[in-house]
């Protein structure tokens, strides 16, 4: 594996008492999609903007494809594609899609022929040919997002930064973009760093997930590893209104049941480590108490892992 991006002890503050990154270190590899997860204000966007040369760091070392951010800033700008948040308006609304892409391509030193060849390739991926002659301002939110992603890939960069790439998009377009990115990174040997609050998207897309908390990387691993870190195999959920408090305590005393969570308005959830034994035990208790309740089983999701880790971190535990 080759390191594409190496970040060491990165620090950034926006003023005296507003440190956002507090010594963040992270490596990203070729052929990898790494998702940054963290609560709002945890420093995800700040990190991406520093890597995209839009913000200066206070200290730390950053290497992108071997180039030092301190010495080779302009060289580095050739190497990445960037999609920031709020892409709804981030191209010229009175230029057509193709005119926008040609202009932005020209700013990267591409001639018309190169831009057109790349556009042709990308519109095939996105099935976007029919929109090329439309004004950017007349496109839907999803179409605009597609254009902005195409713009980021126009110069075929080795590294791509996407800050919440599918925010506000309808599920079908979001799915198309996800499938494209996955295929593109794999086939073209790219490195993709993305932030997202849609955890199902992160689960589907990412090779690894990094949890950022209080300005540092609190935990990094595959989505599977993060889920395993929750310490349960899955959850059995019962309808809240049908389960008296005493019964919840009784279920919690079963050996395969590790914890319970009643934050949801409709379901009370039991974390378990042996599905068959837990199911048998719970059914036995429900029969004994003559309770009729619907129940369901679900696997540990990335959201569970995220909430669990963030809960630990907020309580002062090391993840």
């Amino acid at each position: 594996m080759t390191i594409s991006i190496s970040v060491k002890d990165l620090r950034k503050s926006y003023g005296k008492d507003s440190a956002v990154l507090k010594g963040l270190s992270l490596d990203l590899y070729q052929d990898e999609i790494l998702a940054l997860l963290g609560p709002n204000g945890s420093g995800k966007t700040t990190l991406i903007k520093i890597l995209a040369t839009l913000l200066t760091k206070d200290s730390g070392k950053v290497h992108i494809l071997g180039q030092d951010l301190d010495d080779d800033e302009n060289e580095i700008r050739h190497l990445f594609g960037y999609v920031g948040q709020d892409t709804e308006r981030s191209a010229y609304s009175r230029l057509t899609v193709v005119e926008n892409l040609q202009f932005f391509g020209a700013l990267r030193g591409l001639d018309k022929r190169q831009v057109n060849a790349q556009i042709e390739k990308l519109v095939e991926y996105f099935d976007f040919k029919s929109n090329l002659k439309k004004y950017f301002g007349y496109l839907s939110g999803g179409q605009k997002q597609t254009v902005v992603i195409m713009r980021a890939l126009l110069h075929d960069p080795a590294v791509i930064y996407l800050d919440e790439p599918t925010k506000g998009l309808d599920p079908l377009i979001a799915k198309n973009i996800r499938s494209f990115l996955k295929k593109y990174v794999k086939e073209e040997h790219k490195t993709l760093l993305l932030t997202s609050h849609i955890l199902s998207e992160v689960d589907e897309l990412s090779s690894r997930v990094a949890l950022i908390h209080d300005g540092v990387i609190a935990s990094v691993g595959t989505a599977q590893e993060l889920k395993q870190g929750v310490g349960v195999d899955g959850f059995i959920e019962l309808q809240k209104h049908s389960i008296p408090l005493g019964v919840v305590d009784k279920i919690l005393r079963l050996p395969p049941v590790l914890n319970s969570d009643d934050q949801d308005s409709e379901w009370v959830s039991f974390g378990i480590n042996n599905m068959v034994d837990a199911m048998e035990g719970i059914i036995h208790i429900l029969r004994e108490e003559q309770i009729q309740s619907q129940f369901r089983y679900r696997n540990v999701s990335l959201e569970d892992a995220f909430v669990y880790r963030m809960g630990l971190l907020s309580d002062g535990f090391e993840a």
């Binding site: 070729q30 071997g66 060289e75 190497l79 790349q118």
Partner: peptide, 29 residues
């Protein structure tokens, strides 16, 4: 992966089609 592997990787640099552009071309575009 050791830090020594973080070196200038010409394969990567070549993989991007972005290249230096003269100010004149930016100005015209």
């Amino acid at each position: 992966i050791s830090e020594t592997q973080v070196t200038r990787d010409t394969h990567y640099v070549k993989s991007s089609k972005s290249k230096p552009i003269s100010s004149w071309k930016v100005f015209v575009a």
